[in-house]
């Protein structure tokens, strides 16, 4: 069953069309990743789904019905930038938000789930980045929502805190919640998301599971060669294949037959010092689809 359906969603601000006829479905219990460069229309799309922004046209259906005002009872949101009321402890903040909903989860359990026990009575302004994100996630979960929106939840966190947060999201998924995640980290998307929706210039440019999308766009693996180990390389590479690109200090060759390509490279006399073979990632796909690097 689709917990959320979006049909021909449009949002325009004066003469700018931020979201241009976007349609997609979200089956219950999955983690959907919304990817796209800055300014692609991700946040606007998400804010329309959250009921914060009114769509110019199009339909948003929750649980098969048109979004109504009480949708907020079943939705949990973690904003990217948000402040909390001053002078309140972690527990008081959770209590405050819990009171807004007709039903809420047991706060002690929530505190435990989000690993907030050690500073439940600390002023919320005195939390570290990772602790703060976990509190914001706890706030998003306080009403036991069926759909949880996470907007760039790990931006600015250290690798350890990110890993912790991912584990937390996995736990939430295990509870059967549907998660909508936006992120600029492709490893995060690959790790957490069952389905992806890549948006650019207000339109959906690709959709599917990470593996499906990758195999759709990349047939094979990438062979990387350091640029400075070869001279006049483009001439030689042109002989070999058309399927190469330059990124930073490297040449990248996409191939489905590694052995053949490697022996061909040797035949052309290209030194293989510093050569690397790796599988294409979402980041490669992103570059290919949107033409510009994601900013973290």
């Amino acid at each position: 069953m689709n917990i959320l359906s979006v049909k021909n969603l449009v949002k325009s601000f004066r003469d700018v069309i931020a979201v241009d006829h976007i349609s997609f479905d979200v089956p219950e219990g999955i983690c959907l990743g919304l990817l796209g460069p800055n300014g692609a229309g991700k946040t606007t799309t998400i804010e329309m789904l959250e009921g914060l922004v009114k769509p110019s046209s199009g339909e948003i259906l929750y649980f098969g019905e048109l979004a109504a005002t009480d949708v907020s009872q079943h939705v949990g949101i973690q904003f990217q930038h948000t402040s909390l009321p001053d002078h309140m402890t972690v527990k008081e903040t959770l209590k405050l938000f819990a009171s807004f909903y007709t039903e809420s989860v047991d706060l002690d359990e929530l505190i435990k789930l989000c690993a907030l026990e050690d500073f439940a009575n600390r002023d919320a302004r005195r939390l570290s980045g990772g602790q703060r994100q976990r509190l914001l996630l706890a706030l998003a979960l306080v009403n036991d929502p069926r759909v949880v929106f996470l907007d760039e939840p790990t931006t600015g966190l250290d690798p350890q805190a990110r890993r912790n947060f991912w584990d937390l999201v996995q736990k939430i998924k295990a509870k059967g919640k549907t998660v909508l995640l936006t992120t600029h980290y492709m490893d995060e998307a690959q790790y957490l998301c069952d389905e992806l929706l890549i948006i650019d210039k207000g339109k959906v440019v690709e959709t599917g599971s990470p593996d499906t999308i990758l195999s759709r766009h990349f047939d094979g693996v990438l062979i990387q060669l350091p640029k400075d180990s070869i001279t006049d390389v483009s001439h030689k590479l042109d002989e070999l294949t058309k399927n190469y690109s330059e990124t930073g200090s490297k040449f990248e060759i996409l191939t489905s037959e590694v052995d053949a390509t490697l022996s061909e490279l040797m035949r052309l006399g290209i030194p293989l010092q510093g050569l690397q073979v790796r599988a294409p990632t979402l980041e490669d796909l992103f570059l290919k689809l949107t033409g510009h690097q994601l900013r973290a």
């Binding site: 959250e50 009921g51 914060l52 949101i77 948000t82 402040s83 807004f100 007709t102 706030l139």
Partner: peptide, 16 residues
Amino acid sequence: RYRKNGVLKRLKATPL
């Protein structure tokens, strides 16, 4: 201040 730093927006996303 609440509007500027996003507290109001956060509250708007609740049934309040």
